[in-house]
Write a protein that binds this DNA or RNA. Structure first.
Lengths: 159, 159
DNA sequence: TATTGTTATACTCTATAACTATA
DNA sequence: TATAGTTATAGAGTATAACAATA
């Protein structure tokens, strides 16, 4: 498909994915900003909401964030009153991190924000096309080995 | 569509777009790395390849990169021998930037790389689905006001 | 006065290494 | 000896302000 002039990459599928994806990432960050939370930090609390209590190391592994960076992330979330650190019973080196009631509430509120975001992105697209698009994206994500719900750009490789 | 457990955002259309998009952006950057060029710098030379000669300010406007950041970008491209600065004839404050033959060649070689990247991303997807996907993405990009061939994350707002 | 290119500075992110306390 | 959490440092990338030359 060629929809006009411009540089060679304009009609490349991977460029289009990257272009629209970056737009969505920015829209998501902007939607989160009024809640005083970043996409990274939302990754942490949404994971805690789904899995329950986790150690910092488990969170780091699960999200692909380095444990060094996890420290400050949990510090901020704790200062905001959304998570609590508790000493792990069996392994006294580790902390268990769990959502506070306020954190669980924030997680739910942001979860309810997502349909609005999706509507804004897919505005004007017939519902059939929307479903088709989602199905194609899931198919690519699975084929490429992307983990469900894990955003690649949170990443940082282990040592 | 719900394809399993995990956090609330896992099946959100905008999350999926952002997730797959970030993967594609990383794959593109990795494919460019052996050529010694970044996605940002490729944005510059691909634009020059399509439009011809442009001033730094015109490049900055066209790509959504701030002119302050354009300076170092052109410095690097010039040091690599891919572009040349020439004094603008009518406006002696400005520089015209143009591709060298080597730069034009690199632009073409990278342009030929894109189909491979697209094949890798869409591996296993029937050609009909691939076309459908591209069409849906173009439709969203146009509706959201994204400019053809311009990646949003190159961005930096003017003063 | 406004604009083009430039430089300098600061601030955010993240990559790396090293430390401590536990295992 | 290895691991969980922590801290410190340095390097990208980018945002902001200010400057010289020219319009």
């Amino acid at each position: 498909m060629d929809t006009g002039g411009g540089p060679a990459h304009s009609d490349s599928l991977s460029f289009l994915l990257s272009q629209v994806g970056a737009y969505c990432a920015a829209a998501f960050a902007a939607a989160l900003a009024p809640y005083g939370i970043t996409p990274r930090a939302y990754g942490v609390i949404s994971n805690l909401g789904a899995v329950g209590v986790m150690t910092q190391q488990q969170l780091a592994n699960s999200l692909g964030i380095h444990r060094n960076n996890m420290v400050g992330l949990i510090d901020d979330l704790e200062a905001s009153g959304w998570v609590r650190r508790e000493r792990h019973q069996q392994d006294r080196r580790a902390f268990n991190v769990r959502l506070t009631p306020e954190g669980a509430d924030l997680t739910r509120r942001i979860g309810r924000l997502l349909p609005e975001l999706d509507d804004a992105v897919a505005d004007g697209l017939p519902i059939r096309d929307r479903e088709r698009l989602a199905r194609l994206l899931v198919s690519i994500a699975q084929a490429r080995g992307l983990r469900r719900g894990v955003h690649p750009s949170l990443g940082a490789r282990p040592e």
